[in-house]
């Protein structure tokens, strides 16, 4: 009771705010809960189940299309390959994110070098025992993860190089890096994707035809490496100058200094920034649907046009489902970022 009094009703202003809050809850939360649970439809095999003005969410639409949402049109018989790729990714990521597990460097090398190669071989196929699956069949969460992971795998090393180049004492290198970073950061991702999709073919010799997905991946990678460069630059700037000076005094060359002394510390400093960039990248993958690639959102939109499921609430249900999927990933990552931030700050206190 006292908690209620102190926190909600402690004065005239506070009491008024409480009533506003209760009014908002009544106006928004109650209808949402009603739509999602109480008036929702939970079973059915086609639109008939979801028809009716009083019906809420059409959840059977989600169950029925679940496989498409995850795999797109990836052939059913080959889906084990996708599952294997997911599993390997998780197996590599979990130890990396757990602070106490050792051998981080090998972990990173596996994730940045070996895993992408394995994943490409498994997903694309074209080898004996692995029939080829053209990227136009890929869709749903598979595509979202492919784009996001490729983005981060490429943008991390590239971003580091750009950040180092931007701080370089050599004016030409510095200028080139600044131009590269500012151009990619100044334009919307949509224009980059248009550029990759429509303009890039013009710059390639006749006959060299890049896969549409690959073109998008290039665009996304270049775009996010510019943002990553700024994050890494922040970490490098926060390093005390004494570190580099001490390394030079010991006789270490520039590459050795960077690789063994400066970068490990700087990158650890900006792990929250790196995770935030990844969250942004993860959300930005939805833009590929504008150039015709079916990510999770694109797949949901595609299934919405199925007349079999055409009902008043199907669209809302689809979007809410997609939102929930993204939210779980992004919120989880941001929680991890907060966790790491706290750990890093704790480590800083002398």
């Amino acid at each position: 009771m006292t908690w209620l009094r102190q926190n909600l009703f402690s004065g005239w202003g506070n009491t008024a705010l409480t009533f506003i809050a209760l009014w908002l809850i009544w106006g928004i939360v109650v209808p949402v809960l009603d739509w999602a649970i109480f008036s929702a439809v939970f079973s059915g095999s086609n639109r008939d189940a979801c028809l009716g003005a009083d019906k809420g969410a059409c959840w059977p639409f989600i169950y029925a299309n679940w496989d498409q949402f995850i795999y797109g049109r990836y052939p059913e018989a080959e889906r084990w390959r996708v599952n294997l790729v997911f599993f390997l990714g998780a197996a590599g990521l979990v130890p990396l994110l757990t602070p106490r597990v050792p051998a981080k460097l090998w972990n990173v090398i596996f994730l940045l070098v070996a895993y992408p190669v394995i994943a490409v071989i498994l997903l694309v196929g074209g080898r004996p025992g692995l029939p080829q699956v053209d990227t136009s069949y890929w869709g749903g969460l598979l595509v979202t993860l492919v784009v996001a992971v490729t983005g981060i795998v490429v943008s991390l090393p590239l971003g580091v190089l750009l950040a180092l180049g931007r701080r370089s004492a050599m004016p030409v290198i510095r200028m080139l890096c600044i131009i590269f970073i500012e151009v990619w950061r100044g334009v919307p991702l949509v224009t980059v994707l248009f550029m990759a999709s429509v303009m890039l073919p013009m710059f390639l010799p006749e006959g060299v035809n890049f896969d549409n997905l690959l073109r998008c991946l290039i665009g996304v990678a270049l775009f996010s490496s510019a943002y990553m460069a700024e994050v890494v630059r922040g970490g490098l700037q926060s390093m005390p100058k004494g570190q580099e000076e001490a390394a030079r005094a010991l006789g270490l060359s520039y590459p050795h200094t960077m690789l063994f002394i400066i970068l490990p510390q700087a990158l650890r400093h900006v792990i929250p920034g790196i995770v935030n960039t990844f969250i942004g990248l993860f959300k930005d993958t939805t833009l590929v649907l504008i150039v015709g690639i079916f990510d999770l959102l694109g797949q949901v939109r595609s299934q919405l046009s199925d007349p079999n499921w055409s009902a008043p609430q199907t669209a809302v249900t689809g979007y809410v489902f997609a939102a929930a999927m993204f939210w779980i990933f992004c919120f989880g990552m941001s929680r991890y970022s907060t966790f790491m931030e706290r750990r890093l700050n704790a480590g800083q206190q002398h």
Partner: peptide, 24 residues
């Protein structure tokens, strides 16, 4: 805000909209 209801509603707003794609 010191009003728990208002602060919580604001937090829900921020965490929901920040973690879903803008296109969505």
């Amino acid at each position: 805000s010191t009003n728990w209801l208002i602060a919580t509603l604001a937090t829900i707003y921020v965490e929901t909209l920040r973690n879903t794609p803008v296109l969505l």
